[in-house]
């Protein structure tokens, strides 16, 4: 139901009341902003010297490197998780019982364990076998982060794809078999393309989650944006203090901008998919949004009845 069903078109009294609420609400928000700025100013965070550090070439280079290493992890983990997710989805849908059991077990285990726990365990593991692992050992925190993100997000992407495959009408599969297509052909030519197409917004939303979760690198001391910024802030002293607050505010803006960009792509694709007359229902971009966690499309699905998840 559109929100307008919940209330009548405002009459004169309601209009006055709405204006009062508007003024009160805006005043409250404005008050909060003013208060924050006042307090920040009082604590000396708004001093020009504090913000002047961002004019420093070294600081800028630090932040740029942080962004680049965040993006590096994101690109690698994003691509790998899509590939592994595809494999896991196909494995879980396989007719061979044991393959589908193994895939199911893998997916359920790594989806249930917090990503941070996985990454940390991998990190410690890599560090303790540093010498035997070669490339991975040299860069333990990077690979722990990438592999942890890959495994976790692959499990979620696999579930998304599986939901997409299950949403393809049965008749199409039967028709394909009747035409004499083989199992592999049905999967690659019929099911997966439609699954990917209908689930694209959810897949991209999960990529947003991947991007957000790269910040867990902070905890395994990988120099992604958050960690780089924090170490940088610890090394700078302005007016006798570390400018942590200012740096955190700037980094927050960068993160939000990156994630917003990616999620608006998801929303755009969703809108575009709804307009196209392909007969494929497109899932919600907000689906999982970031409830990093779960069968995508659960949240926010009932509305327009896009593909039902795994039922």
């Amino acid at each position: 139901m559109s929100s307008s069903v919940l209330y009548d078109a405002p009459g004169p009294k309601a209009r006055v009341r709405n204006i009062i609420y508007t003024v009160l609400g805006s005043a409250l928000v404005l008050g909060l902003v003013v208060f924050s700025v006042y307090r920040l100013n009082e604590k000396g965070v708004l001093e020009p010297e504090v913000w002047n550090i961002f004019n420093n070439a070294g600081v800028r280079a630090n932040i740029r490197d942080g962004v680049l290493s965040t993006l590096k992890v994101f690109a690698l983990a994003g691509v790998l998780s899509l590939v592994l997710g595809l494999l896991l989805a196909v494995a879980r849908l396989s007719d061979h019982k044991w393959i589908s059991w193994v895939a199911t077990g893998f997916i359920e285990l790594f989806r249930a364990v917090p990503l941070l726990i996985t990454i940390y365990a991998l990190w410690v593991l890599f560090l303790s076998y540093k010498d035997d692992l070669g490339v991975i050992g040299e860069n333990a925190s990077f690979w722990a982060l990438v592999i942890g993100l890959t495994v976790y997000n692959a499990c979620v992407q696999a579930e998304v794809l599986r939901a997409g495959v299950n949403a393809v009408p049965r008749g199409q599969v039967e028709a394909a078999y009747a035409l004499g297509l083989r199992k592999t052909q049905v999967m690659t030519m019929l099911l997966l393309p439609q699954a990917v197409r209908s689930m694209l917004p959810t897949i991209i939303s999960q990529l947003v989650v991947t991007l957000k979760d790269t910040s867990l690198g902070y905890i395994v001391t990988y120099a992604e944006l958050l960690f780089a910024a924090r170490t940088m802030a610890n090394n700078i002293i302005v007016n006798g203090e570390n400018p942590i607050t200012a740096v955190v505010i700037v980094v927050a803006a960068i993160y939000i901008a990156m994630c917003l960009l990616l999620s608006s792509l998801a929303t755009w694709i969703e809108k575009r998919g709804r307009r196209a007359k392909t007969g494929i229902t497109v899932a919600h971009a907000g689906g999982t949004g970031g409830a990093p966690e779960d069968v995508p499309g659960d949240v926010g699905m009932p509305m327009d009845g896009p593909p039902d998840v795994s039922k």
């Binding site: 910040s215 607050t245 939000i256």
Partner: peptide, 21 residues
């Protein structure tokens, strides 16, 4: 805002910005 902010960042904000404000 909250959906597009990494949780780790929110923790940092809670630790270093909220106490200041």
């Amino acid at each position: 805002l909250f959906r597009n902010t990494p949780l780790t960042l929110l923790f940092l904000i809670a630790w270093f910005v909220v106490p200041v404000i």
